[in-house]
Amino acid sequence: MEGLKLSDAELMVYIHPSKSRNVRKAICRELSSLLFQYDETFDGVLLAYDLTVGSKQAKILAGLTPYFGVRVNTKLLLFNPKPNSLVEGKILKVSLESIHVVVLGFSAAVITDVDIREEFKYRMKDGEECFVSRSDKDHVLKVGTMLRLQVQSFDEEVMHIAGSLIPANTGCVKWLEKKNDEEALHMDRDRKRRKL
């Protein structure tokens, strides 16, 4: 999935003296407070981290409460989908006007009816709202379907994605993978025929 990146970072984490007995736990608590929030320093939403304390030495900051800074090396997993990138999520709700998706379990995405390509037609199928492709009846978008969508915009404050299904490489992930496998099989057969 596009929008995910792994980044190495060298950070200085400032810790209150009362937490000096277990420095590693205090560092983890500080970094955990940044999880699932957009941070301009990292240019993304922090999803996970793996840290190693760089040095046993700490820098003491003068003041009423003398905090100390610990240098930390960490690997960060960040989420920051850029416009026109592809992300995947699970469909939560389908209506005539929109499709609602959750991406990575925390970010909401909405695809409005103007951003759904004309190939898809809204239907009620077995009492369930869905969008069905006119060109292939097996390409169905309904609640529970894993969906690949194109990002139009990402609102960092509320973790909201405005998405689109206009490009041909968007839609049901299983259907897209099956289609790609069939195309690869046809290309392989054509190569074998040419060799003969």
Rank of each mutant, 00 (worst) to 15 (best):
P83W: 02
P83R: 08
P83Q: 06
S85E: 12
S85N: 08
L86P: 02
K90H: 02
I91F: 10
K93W: 05
K93F: 09
S95G: 11
S98P: 09
S98A: 15
I99G: 04
V101S: 03
V103E: 03
S107D: 01
A108P: 00
D113Q: 15
V114H: 12
V114E: 12
V114F: 13
D115A: 15
D115V: 06
R117T: 12
K121T: 09
Y122V: 07
R123Q: 11
E128C: 07
E129N: 12
F131R: 10
V132I: 11
D136E: 11
D138Y: 07
H139V: 06
L141D: 00
K142N: 04
T145W: 07
R148D: 00
L149T: 03
Q150K: 15
V151H: 03
Q152Y: 08
S153R: 12
D155Y: 07
E157A: 14
V158H: 14
M159H: 14
M159E: 10
G163D: 08
S164V: 08
L165E: 00
I166E: 08
N169D: 13
N169V: 10
N169S: 10
T170H: 00
G171H: 00
G171T: 01
G171I: 00
K174G: 05
W175F: 14
L176M: 09
K178I: 07
K179Q: 04
D181P: 01
D181M: 13
D181V: 07
E182D: 13
E182N: 15
